[in-house]
């Protein structure tokens, strides 16, 4: 459990960090919850690690004009506990509270998690359901990518060489909407075997708005667009969730077969929608 030799930089400013990252093959370290174990197993052997831990101004949660911004090095625990997130974006706080265990939540960061893009990570389901955006910066660029265009494949995102995730941008949830994140946690890793995030708005007792993000089931998190449309069009929850996963190839491993994952996605979607519905006013 000893990593290979590597160069380590702990830049003191974002500019310095971006310059370092622009300089060639660099691995960016945030909370280290994925990178460090991989390095200790020597599955990862980066030559140069750039630690964002000492870069000021990347750890924040702010709101202005209905837009919430969360700095990349904000930890899961900070997100879970922040009154601002709990009040204005409670789906994300709920998802954060279900990540790994308390030690992981204390160290792991939202930027690190989404940049790593594990297909079973918890956040992507919520980011998709929230129609969030990811801000990517490099030494000479600054752009924002929709969450739906960010997660491309297992461990593959829209991040270009030289870029880092600087912040997550989320529209605040409306107070009247209901939300829920449901998951089956793997008993060893805590990863979502399947996780479903749902947002529901009601008008006149009927579902007028639905957003559903699914993680863990397929190669990357996806939005259940057909189910959303069906719900908004007055279909029953069962009718809507029956479409979830259609056209997706479900993952399979020792713990859960593709069929089971597909089934879980529907069960958890049904449960997430039902709870969100009771929470919506």
């Amino acid at each position: 459990m000893i990593p290979q030799e590597f160069e380590y930089s702990a830049p003191g400013t974002l500019q310095e960090a971006l310059q370092l990252i622009a300089g060639g093959e660099r691995k960016v370290l945030a909370g280290g919850m994925s990178l460090i174990p991989m390095m200790k197993l020597r599955l990862a052997a980066p030559e140069h690690v750039v630690d964002l831990g000492r870069v000021p101004g990347l750890n924040y949660i702010t709101e202005s004009g209905g837009t919430i911004r969360i700095g990349a090095t904000t930890t899961h625990h900070e997100i879970e506990m922040a009154p601002l997130v709990r009040g204005r974006c409670p789906l994300l706080a709920e998802a954060a509270s279900r990540i790994g265990d308390i030690q992981v939540r204390n160290r792991g960061t939202i930027g690190g998690s989404i940049a790593h893009a594990d297909p079973a990570a918890d956040y992507p389901a919520s980011l998709l359901a929230l129609e969030g955006q990811v801000r990517l910066v490099s030494a000479n660029s600054d752009r924002t990518v929709a969450a739906s265009d960010f997660f491309l494949d297992p461990f593959t995102t829209a991040i270009e060489p030289g870029e880092i995730v600087s912040e997550i941008v989320l529209p605040a949830e409306e107070g009247s909407e209901g939300y829920r994140y449901e998951k089956l946690a793997h008993p060893a890793s805590g990863f979502a075997v399947v996780g479903v995030a749902a947002r529901i708005k009601k008008t006149g007792g009927k579902i007028s708005f639905a957003r559903i993000g699914v993680t863990g089931m397929a190669a990357h998190a996806f939005r259940a667009l057909n189910a959303e449309k069906l719900l908004e069009g007055g279909a029953t929850i069962d009718e809507a969730v029956a479409t979830i996963g259609e056209g997706e190839e479900a993952n399979s491993d020792l713990y859960a077969s593709a069929d089971y994952r597909q089934h879980l996605a529907r069960v958890h979607a049904r449960r997430a929608i039902s709870v969100a519905l009771t929470r919506a006013t």
Partner: peptide, 17 residues
């Protein structure tokens, strides 16, 4: 080897990718 011990949950999805 090591990839078998820690990679089984990802083998299916990454192979397809």
């Amino acid at each position: 080897g090591t990839i078998a011990a820690v990679g089984q949950r990802l083998l299916d999805t990454t192979s397809r990718m």
